Computed example of a mutant assay.
Amino acid sequence: MKFIDGTLVSPGKGGVYGERTLGEWRIWDPYRSKLAALVLKGTEVTLDASVHVLYLGAANGTTVSHVADYAGTVYAIEFAPRPMQDLIEVSRRRKNIVPIMADVNRMQVYEPLVEQVDFIYQDVAQPNQVAIAVNHLKFLKRGGTYILMLKTRSVNVREDPKDVCEASVQALEAAGLVVQTVQWLDPYHRDHAALVCRLPED
């Protein structure tokens, strides 16, 4: 990831969502992207052309577009028709994005289309966020990274967000992931925790 004078940027050509630019660099807005917020909070995230990504919950393609600026192939899964239209438009300008309209709870639909990847990024506002992550581990190479953007209020609106987070960490570790970092994303995104995980080599 590159910073210019303390500002996180990505090396894409042409704006996607009206973002500002610095020369040929796009400014990556942490209020629009939880991944940008995670990086600006001090967590190192490695993306380069050798890294192939499965992105769950691609929405309109805001963060997907920045990820694609750095990464190799990005398989972008989105279910809602309206955001999917925007995502398809983004993919026309970034040929390494593979937009797939599908429900992350029915991964058998896209399993034949997606290779094993080095990096999975999940940003899905559903109660079963941890179960979705566990079910998608089959797509992750050994030694790969899994980042779950945990929307605690979507899991349980009545429970303390920290308790939701702790239970989620325990469930991910029970499934075989190593949770390396738990980073709350305030002030950019309230009650959101980024769980940065690694799948051990063996």
Rank of each mutant, 00 (worst) to 15 (best):
F3Y: 15
F3C: 12
G6V: 03
L8G: 07
V9I: 14
S10C: 09
G12F: 08
G14S: 12
V16A: 13
E19Q: 15
T21S: 09
G23Q: 07
R26A: 04
I27S: 03
W28F: 09
S33L: 06
L35M: 14
L35S: 09
L35A: 11
V39K: 10
L40C: 15
L47I: 15
A49H: 15
A49L: 14
L54K: 04
Y55W: 03
L56S: 07
A59C: 05
G61L: 01
T62S: 10
T62V: 05
T63Q: 00
Y70A: 11
V74R: 04
E78F: 10
F79D: 07
R82E: 10
I88M: 15
R94Y: 11
K95W: 13
N96S: 06
I97Q: 08
I97A: 10
I100H: 04
M107D: 11
P112R: 01
P112N: 00
L113T: 02
L113A: 04
V114G: 01
Y121W: 08
Q129D: 14
A131F: 06
V134W: 10
N135V: 02
R142H: 10
R153M: 15
S154V: 13
K162M: 04
V164Y: 06
C165I: 02
S168Y: 02
V169I: 15
L172I: 12
E173G: 13
A175R: 07
L177H: 07
T181K: 14
V182F: 02
W184C: 00
L185F: 08
A193K: 00
A193M: 01
L195E: 07
V196D: 04
C197N: 08
